[in-house]
Each structure stands twice: as C-alpha cells, then as structure tokens.
C-alpha cells in the first residue's frame, strides 16, 4: 500500500500526461535563501486523480505555481503530453485556493470567460457555459452574480469556469480550504462525480488528509521545508466513491497511515514557526 518516494512507481506508467521532473525552487528571504521545493518529481497518468499533501510551509503552493506556469524561476521541467512548458498552458486549468470569480460577471459570464477568449459566438458559449454550470450543480443560478452566492457556490463557479476551458489537466490548490467540513465533503463528492464523468486528470494540492483520501488514486506526501517527496501512497478504495466512504475501515487506515507520515513533518513545521516567532519578538524587543 505504501511505496517509497520514487516517481517511477507502478502506478505512474510511461504514458503519463503530466511529468514533473526534478523541480527545485529557491527563494531569497531576509534570513537567507530558502529551498522551498527540493528535487520533486511526479508523473500523472491520464484520468488519474493525484493529490499532493503536506504541512504548511512544505512548498505545495509553490509546486502548484510551477506546474501551472505561474512561477518560472525554478530548476527542472514540467511536461504536458510530451511538451515541455515554460509558462501558463492551455492544457492546464487552474482552480485557486482564494475566491477567484469575477464579481462583475454573472455566473454564466464567469463560466463562459475562457470560451469568450477563444472567440466562440455568444449563443454557443452561453450554451456551453450552461452545460458546465449544470455539471457543478448550479442550475438556476445562471444570472446571479458571485456576490449573491455562498463561498462553496463561488468555488463551484471557479471550477466550472476552469472546466469550460476543457483542460487536459485540472490543477487545484486547496480549493475548499475556506469552507466548513460538511460543505467540503459534499463538494468533494461533486468533484469526484465530475472527475469520473469527464475522466479528468486532476492534480490536487491540499493539506486535508480526508479530502485527499476521499478523492485520490495516489497521494504524494511531502516533507516540511525543504519540500521533498516523502512517500507516495496508492489509495486502493473502490470507485465510484462518495463521501460515505469516510466511514469505512479502509479509509480510516489510509488516514492513519498518512497522518503518521505527516505528523512528524507538521510538528517540525510548528516548532520552526514557534522559533521564528520567538526570534521575531526578540528582534523586536532589542
């Protein structure tokens, strides 16, 4: 069930649609250079749901920005379907952690945004947008503005907007982090339904173990700073899945195993944060 940190695991076959190879990211900080991501390699197969999990400060979001092409100052390569990419790419659709709908556009216009960029005629793009709105379960809200919706509904609009661009890879950075646990589980169901219906290759960045186990085929556990791949866990739970699976014994075992790996990293992160806070206060007091 648990496999050592190695990008060429059984699950990651050679037909990988996304290959992240030896990514290293360094940041300059007032305290000196920090290695945020250290030699991270991943392979994602078509239709696979892969999650990257790690404690705060492990470089998950940095990795998200590298794969999405928003961060170009790094070592290593990102390949999508055999093509090395060096910036944002139409094959990768990103869903962000922060609320990212356009408040000045209705739900339909938000979802139709990527279609508008392709020059698709208005009637056609509205029809397409409605399809994706229905897919995320927001029928009836087409003409509402994001300000009239709840946080969970707004994240579904963001998801529909990204799906409307029909990306080969859906890249999500803790999209439900700001939501309560129950909404998060239910939206997890929705994401699973969509992923299974579209056979959508998905790379999810998260710090939530339940969310990762609920949805993933494999989970990449990362170490605290510098962010390295600690272990890759194959999730052998039946599909189609729903949030009901969180009550199963097998699910509990996966959660416990991943927490055992993460606990040490999270503790290191917490100690590091406390040390920094103390140093900061000492610096401020002197």
């Amino acid at each position: 069930m648990l496999t050592p940190a190695n990008p060429t695991t059984q699950a990651a076959a050679d037909d990988a649609i996304l290959v992240v190879d030896n990514i290293v990211v360094r940041f300059e900080t007032p305290e000196g250079p920090i290695v945020a991501v250290d030699d991270v390699s991943l392979k994602v197969k078509p239709g696979e749901f892969l999650s990257v999990i790690g404690p705060s400060g492990c470089g998950k979001s940095t990795l998200f920005n590298v794969v999405g092409g928003l961060l170009s100052d790094h070592q290593g390569t990102v390949n999508v379907a055999g093509e090395t990419i060096s910036g944002p790419h139409q094959s990768i659709g990103m869903v962000f952690q922060e609320e990212s709908t356009f408040p000045w556009r209705t739900v339909t216009d938000n979802v139709a945004f990527p279609l508008e960029l392709t020059g698709m005629p208005k009637a056609q793009r509205i029809e397409r947008a409605r399809h994706f709105i229905a897919l995320v379960g927001l029928d009836g809200f087409e003409n509402r503005y994001p300000g009239e919706l709840s946080g969970g509904m707004r994240q579904r609009v963001s998801l529909a907007r990204t799906l409307a661009s029909e990306p080969k890879i859906l890249l999500m950075d803790e999209p439900f982090a700001a939501l309560d646990e129950q909404t998060r589980l239910l939206l997890g169901d929705k994401v699973l339904q969509i992923q299974q219906a579209l056979k959508q290759t998905t790379l999810l960045i998260t710090h939530n173990i339940t969310e990762a186990v609920q949805m993933s085929d494999r989970i990449v556990v990362m170490t605290y700073r510098p962010g390295k791949v600690k272990r890759i866990v194959d999730i052998d739970l039946p599909r189609p899945r729903t949030s009901e699976i969180v009550g199963s014994e097998a699910f509990g075992r996966y959660v416990a195993q991943i927490w055992a790996d993460l606990r040490e990293e999270a503790s290191r992160g917490m100690r590091d944060e406390e040390k920094h806070t103390l140093e900061h206060h000492k610096g401020g007091a002197s």
Binding site: G68, L70, P88, F96, E98, S100, F102, W104, F113
Partner: peptide, 29 residues
C-alpha cells in the same frame, strides 16, 4: 486588484490588453 484575479488571467494566457480590459479595469472600476 486582487492577485488571484490577475493569476486567473495569467492561467488563461491572456494578452496584456485582455488582462487590462477583462480583469484589471473592471476590478479597479
């Protein structure tokens, strides 16, 4: 303008002109 909105534009590969008219300007209005 919120950075995440700018990043949404970047993720959709907007040209500088599209980035301005479709994101920055309406957000700044």
């Amino acid at each position: 303008t919120r950075k995440v909105l700018v990043n949404v534009g970047r993720s959709f590969n907007l040209t500088p002109s599209q980035q301005f008219w479709k994101i920055l300007f309406p957000a700044a209005l």
